[in-house]
C-alpha cells in the first residue's frame, strides 16, 4: 500500500489532484481511493486530501496516519502546518517551490509547479492551476505511469495546456 497526503489551500485543486491521481492509478490497473479531509473547507484555508494506491482492493476508510509521500502544492502552508507529521521513515516530500528546500531526515524534491503553470498560461480566475502539472512530477517519480497521467488529465480536461504543463513538470523534476 502506498499512501499519499496532499497539502494545499481550499480552491487550489488538491482534491482534484487526488482524483486525477486515483484515476491514473486505475488506468495503471491498480486499486486506489481518494478522499478529501472531512472538515470545513474554505477557499484559501489549508486543506489536506488523501490517496491510497495498492495492487489489492483497498478496504481501509480511516485516515492516513503515516504517508509514504507528502505533496505540498503551496509552500506557504509550511509556515503554519507541520506537513511532515507522521511521514514514514525514508518517506518523500514533493514541494511546489522555485527554490531548494532543506528538511531534516526526509527526501525532499522541489519543482516550480506555479512557474510551469504560468509558462503555459494555465491560469483560471487569476490562479495558476497546480493539480495537472503535479501529475507529471508524480509520473517522473514512478508513482503513476506517464501514459496514465496524461490519459487521466485528458479524461477530465479538454484544455491541452494541462497536458503540456504535466509534460513540462515531467521533464523538469530531478529525482
Amino acid at each position: 500500500m502506498f499512501e499519499i497526503r496532499i497539502h494545499s489551500r481550499g480552491g487550489q485543486g488538491g482534491v482534484t489532484a487526488a482524483r486525477l491521481l486515483a484515476m491514473a492509478s486505475f488506468l495503471d490497473k491498480k486499486h486506489a481511493t481518494a478522499a478529501p479531509f472531512y472538515g470545513a473547507e474554505r477557499r484559501g484555508a489549508p486543506v489536506v486530501s488523501f490517496v491510497r494506491i495498492d495492487d489489492q482492493q483497498i478496504k481501509i476508510y480511516s485516515q492516513i496516519r503515516s504517508p509514504n509521500l507528502i505533496i505540498v502544492l503551496d509552500g506557504s502552508i509550511m509556515d503554519s502546518v507541520d506537513v511532515l507529521q507522521g511521514i514514514q521513515p525514508g518517506g518523500t516530500v514533493l514541494i511546489n517551490s522555485p527554490h531548494p528546500v532543506d528538511l531534516p531526515n526526509v527526501n525532499v524534491l522541489t519543482i516550480d509547479l506555479t512557474g510551469i503553470a504560468l509558462s503555459v498560461n494555465l491560469v483560471v480566475a487569476g490562479s495558476p492551476i497546480l493539480n495537472t502539472p503535479v501529475l507529471g512530477a508524480l509520473a517522473k517519480m514512478g508513482v503513476i505511469t506517464r501514459e496514465s497521467a496524461e490519459a487521466a488529465i485528458r479524461g477530465m480536461f479538454t484544455d491541452e495546456r494541462n497536458v503540456q504543463a504535466a509534460e513540462a513538470a515531467f521533464k523538469e523534476l530531478i529525482v
Binding site: A18, R19, A22, F26, H31, A32, T33, A34, A35, P36, Y38, I58, Y61
Partner: peptide
C-alpha cells in the same frame, strides 16, 4: 451510505 466516509470518497 456513510456520510463522508463513503459519500465523499472516490473509488473506481
Amino acid at each position: 451510505l456513510d456520510g463522508f466516509t463513503l459519500s465523499h470518497i472516490m473509488q473506481s
